[in-house]
Write a protein that binds this DNA or RNA. Structure first.
Lengths: 305, 305
DNA sequence: CCTCACTGCTGCAGTTTATGCAGCGGCTTG
DNA sequence: CAAGCCGCTGCATAAACTGCAGCAGTGAGG
């Protein structure tokens, strides 16, 4: 819709940090962009940006406005998708911000399944740590978030929450693999590879370790689970992961996982959520329903709030 | 803001029912308006209006769009008011839809008081029956609603609810005025003037009467409380009203009011509310706070929901 | 200290978009 | 069947937007 161009421009400037850069990405001249901002500021009666030597920064008024603008843009998408839906065409776009754990198995499966039914729907998958995921909801760069142990909750509207007990990951022949369930103390006797503090698995482990008045001494600390998994296969280190991140039933899998005894480490929680109070586009809403049922059937649901 | 013109036009057409009529009220030609709609429909990929011989009517897609448009327009007002508020100027506009009962005394007082502090704020007061009040919230023609015994609740977000026992209204010398409280049966012995079924007072009375297995036989039935009050002064009829509608402590008042015994007629409830989930403009929000405290101090608050 | 790269901003000209006028055909109503 | 609306279209005009070239201000780096 033409009438939203100003808002799109605004958004681009905020993201780019300067009018000229934004003009490039929008493939118009900085002149046009600059003028639009000037007229908007005049209409508004207040400056939207502070002018700095290296670009522009949102003023207080601008902060309010950009929030409104992004909401408008997202809402327009929703309207369009609802109208498309009216004529029977299930098209649209779903953007989802998620923790790494759902990337290898769960999300690919789910998206493939959804697109099997609705091939006209496209997806964006944003890998975001737990704090950034909520931010993505706020600035409407994501419709949905699927996050393990999120940090802040103010703008997060929970759709579903499921329990995710921490599992120990190791190669097949590892001594810990003998028992059904593993005690945390036993883990500490082996070299450990850990995800960085950004991740929920780590924070759950950390607080459990504190209660044990022990200390985690990781041999490897990384923010790539990909690396973690491959490394554990070579060295005899152990690692940790949550069930949704573990490929179940794949044959060519030399890795073994065992749950940690819940007395030692309480299960973490995986949240499916959206921006509080927002009405999602049709496609996003349907997809959310799908993964909600998928989650609810595979894992234990946790009473929300 | 210029970029919202299309939405404003859209809204005007829906209200007017035809493009030509709307064009008049907008003081542009029908050509321009028509063209805007056509291009919007093209951009949208779906017709917004059905064309009839006598004008236009919203299509299904149009219904979705107009809802969005009105929300956007209202939200822009909110943004503007928040930005004005930033620079310390408390300006803005508050539109309130309300039952008649608050018109004579309560609302004039409250608005005057608010405008005493913030003279730059302007008001619209829409007298709406209980059903139309909620409709006004939905189509954003009102920010707030102050309604006695509303009918539907789906889109109504309650801010405060206070109890309003029904009072009997009569002229000074009336026999019923002797006691502190009046039984309903006693009222039935006198000629009665009643508001029409549109009003909450009537509906509360009606259901109470049914329980008494008696019948109301009103001498006068009207939708004007103004008339009701003046008539009761001349004839010896009695009438009914809720406390907030009764001028308390004014000297030049020949009317007397007595509460009906709560065993006969349970108190009705006066609701202050807004559109569920909407963020109000600053002025409306402040004003709502003011009347909420005013209501809470004068009357008994009722646990919401 | 000076240079240099980068910023936002402005006057002018060209282009695109929106508007207004007159008029057509279709429909309902009296 | 005529009158009165209605939405819609071709054409000319008015308004808005865009692009080019160039200016002044600012901060980083040598």
């Amino acid at each position: 819709m033409r009438h939203l161009h100003s808002l799109r421009y605004l958004d681009a400037i905020v993201r780019a940090g300067s009018i000229r850069k934004a003009a490039e990405t929008l493939s118009i001249t900085s002149t046009a962009l600059n003028r639009r901002i000037l007229t908007m500021e005049q209409e508004l009666g207040a400056p939207i940006f502070e002018r700095l030597a290296r670009g522009v920064r949102l003023s207080a008024a601008g902060e309010i406005l950009i929030h409104h603008a992004r909401a408008q843009l997202a809402d327009m998408e929703r309207v369009k998708s609802q109208i498309s839906d009216l004529s029977g065409i299930r098209r649209g776009h779903v953007s989802i911000a998620c923790s790494q754990a759902v990337l290898p198995v769960f999300l690919p499966e789910q998206i493939a399944r959804y697109r099997g039914e609705h091939p006209a729907v496209t997806f964006s998958v944003l890998r975001r740590d737990r704090e950034a995921a909520e931010q993505a909801l706020v600035d409407h760069s994501a419709d949905l978030a699927l996050v393990f142990e999120p940090i802040r909750f103010s703008e997060f509207g929970t759709l579903l929450a499921v329990s995710q007990p921490i599992h120990v990951l190791m190669s097949k022949g590892h001594p810990l693999a003998k028992t059904r369930s593993v005690r945390l103390r036993d883990c500490l006797r082996y070299p450990i590879a850990l995800p960085s503090h950004l991740y929920g698995v780590r924070s759950v482990l950390d607080s459990a370790i504190v209660r044990l008045s022990a200390k985690l001494r990781p041999v490897i600390e990384t923010d790539s689970f990909e690396f973690l998994r491959h490394y554990a296969r070579q060295d005899k280190t152990i690692s940790f992961q949550i069930p949704i991140g573990i490929a179940q039933g794949t044959r060519a899998n030399d890795d073994v996982s065992r749950p940690i005894d819940p007395r030692d480490v309480p299960p973490g929680i995986l949240y499916l959520g959206q921006l509080r109070g927002r009405t999602l586009p049709v496609a996003a809403s349907r997809f959310a329903e799908q993964i909600a049922t998928a989650l609810a059937t595979s894992f234990d649901e946790v009473g929300s709030e």
